[in-house]
Amino acid sequence: MRLLRFALLLNSMLMVALLSTGCSPSARSPSSAANISGINHVAGQTVNSFTVNGYGGSLIGNSCCIMLPDKWRPGLKANIQWEVDPQTAGNPPSYSDWDKYLAWEKSLKASFQKHSIVVEIPKYDQACGLTVHFLPCNQVKVTASCYGYGAPEYPVKEPLNMKEPASCPVN
């Protein structure tokens, strides 16, 4: 009987502990789904694909979705991974010579470059989606701005069609 009472008491204490942790201030802050979009600022380079914290993005329109905290907090980061086609493989041969086409395709895929970077997400009052800006020298800027690229209030001012410099600074 003592063992049964002890087990019930222990079970009750465990339940109270579990229930109270969900109400503690350290519980995760509310988040909302936001679109992911990208803008390539580099002329002569194609961004084939990219992800933000594992969620896929798009350079044409918006992709859904990434979870962003409703309230910005310091230390909020985005892990960006992307693949670039430096356009060094040349034009494809015709399909009539299938072996040459397959060799070209293999060369094309081998020329793709993969990059990754972790960047701070700048302060926002309201998360209106996350836009990733691909800049020369494999640099990236992100914003959760509600304004569109080119609007005076938009925080990223770099122009489109920027040239890749002859050499990039070493980080």
Rank of each mutant, 00 (worst) to 15 (best):
M1I: 07
M1N: 10
F6L: 11
L9G: 08
L9K: 13
N11C: 09
S12N: 11
L14S: 14
M15W: 13
M15T: 12
A17Q: 14
L18C: 14
L18R: 13
L18M: 15
G22C: 15
C23E: 11
S26F: 14
R28C: 02
R28L: 12
S29L: 11
S29N: 07
P30T: 00
P30W: 01
P30S: 02
S31G: 14
S32L: 10
S32Y: 10
N35D: 13
N40D: 01
H41N: 04
V42D: 09
T46K: 07
V47R: 07
V52M: 01
Y55T: 08
Y55N: 13
G61W: 05
S63I: 08
S63N: 05
S63T: 09
I66L: 08
P69N: 08
K71T: 07
W72L: 01
W72T: 00
P74N: 00
G75T: 00
G75E: 00
L76Y: 00
K77G: 00
W82Y: 07
D85F: 06
P86H: 00
Q87C: 15
T88M: 05
N91K: 14
N91T: 09
P93Y: 08
D99C: 05
E105V: 14
K106V: 03
L108A: 12
K109H: 07
F112D: 03
F112M: 01
Q113H: 07
S116I: 14
P122I: 11
D125Q: 15
D125K: 09
Q126C: 10
L130S: 04
V132W: 06
H133Y: 14
H133S: 07
F134W: 04
L135M: 12
L135S: 03
V142S: 00
T143M: 13
A144S: 15
Y154H: 14
P155L: 02
P155R: 05
K157R: 05
E158F: 08
N161T: 06
N161E: 06
M162F: 03
E164S: 06
S167V: 04
V170F: 14
N171H: 10
